[in-house]
Design a protein around this nucleic acid. Structure first.
Lengths: 193, 193
DNA sequence: AACTTCCATTGATTTTGGTCAAGATAAACC
DNA sequence: GGTTTATCTTGACCAAAATCAATGGAAGTT
């Protein structure tokens, strides 16, 4: 039931049987149908979701009603509005399912408890946090320094699975572009890629 | 000598006298003159620098030789190429001093030792990491969803001290803009701000 | 199978930001 | 103090992306 989650966990920090059992007590499984929300703007993000199966996205809606996708997440990735989750402030993000999903939920209470009582959870979380930061730094650097063509090439290079499973206009939104512009980039660089 | 560092540390995680002493053994003070490098492209980032006094920036140079500023850091902030520091791979970033600086350096060895032997350091690092991630997320959201005028307004709102101490063309670079465009934004929104 | 909705592409036009160039001011250096 | 160098601003022009609009195709629904 929590296969992907624990395989990811053990890949970062090796757990004993009893530690794995302890962590398991804090987890909640949840299924989400395509288009269902995990979080809506205005709510507090009460859980972080780890994806066992499926695909999700987080996005914000600007003052003109336009959606801007902040992130995608597939199997083995976590998603949630960390800022809202940790500070328990109202979120400005929406998170929903792009496909039918199987999730592992970690509540704020579970998170806080595990930080105290399961030292390896603190380590695991620190490592995920660091990796997420490095990935986001890479994305920021590519935004401020690369041409659109190169940014798209590097995206499909880094996340081929997302390109396969997510409609192109959403990838355009993630890059901060109009769908038409992304379509033209693809025709420029040869859409075979 | 490490006043700002420990004041920041204690603000996040309260240290006892003996813990503070233990941490101190792992720290190295360093002074840097304006324009001096902490890290140059092609080197491995061997230390994270915590700023006691002064101002620094990190930037990358693209294939056309153009500089793109990734981040600024003032007193109380840390700077370094985390990706290079943690993986010990060659860095693509440059980090130098915008003003004469007093730094507290944490080497990779010191970092790893403290993660093991000083549990509160692990907590401190996790908290800094999380805050850095949230700040970077906010920046990314503003890039993909806000107008340039609003992005600049939100920047001067959030980092008035940086606007005071750093030349405008560097802030333009940080936003991914030409200096001329930032100048025009400022004249549009009334540069009084 | 017919119908509807979503999606990707392409063209024409407008808007926005970049580039090039010149001039003004201020700061750093000798 | 005078010269050089960095910084900022403004204008004219150019390039790139957004917008508007239309079409064709794919996927989902009944």
């Amino acid at each position: 039931m929590y296969d992907v989650f624990f395989s990811k966990f053990n890949e970062k920090v090796q757990l004993s049987e009893s530690e794995e059992y302890a962590v398991k007590q804090f987890l909640t499984p949840k299924k989400l149908r395509k288009r269902q929300y995990l979080l809506q703007e205005g709510d507090i993000c009460k859980t972080v979701a780890f994806i066992e199966k499926g695909a999700m996205r987080s996005y914000i809606v600007d003052s003109d009603g336009q959606e801007h996708i902040f992130s995608f997440a597939l199997e083995g990735w976590a998603i949630g509005d960390l800022s809202s989750f940790l500070t328990e402030q109202i979120s400005t993000q929406n998170i929903d399912a792009l496909e039918d999903c199987e999730l592992v939920l970690i509540s704020k209470y579970a998170h806080d408890q595990m930080l105290i009582s399961v030292p390896k959870y603190a380590t695991f979380f620190r490592i995920l946090m660091t990796e997420a930061y490095i990935a986001l730094q890479k994305r920021t650097l590519s935004i401020i320094s690369m041409s659109l063509d190169d940014r798209y090439k590097s995206f499909i290079d880094q996340y081929p699975d997302i390109v396969q499973r997510v409609p192109q206009h959403m990838i355009a939104s993630h890059m901060g572009l109009s769908p038409e512009t992304l379509s033209r980039i693809r025709s420029r660089i040869g859409k075979s890629q």
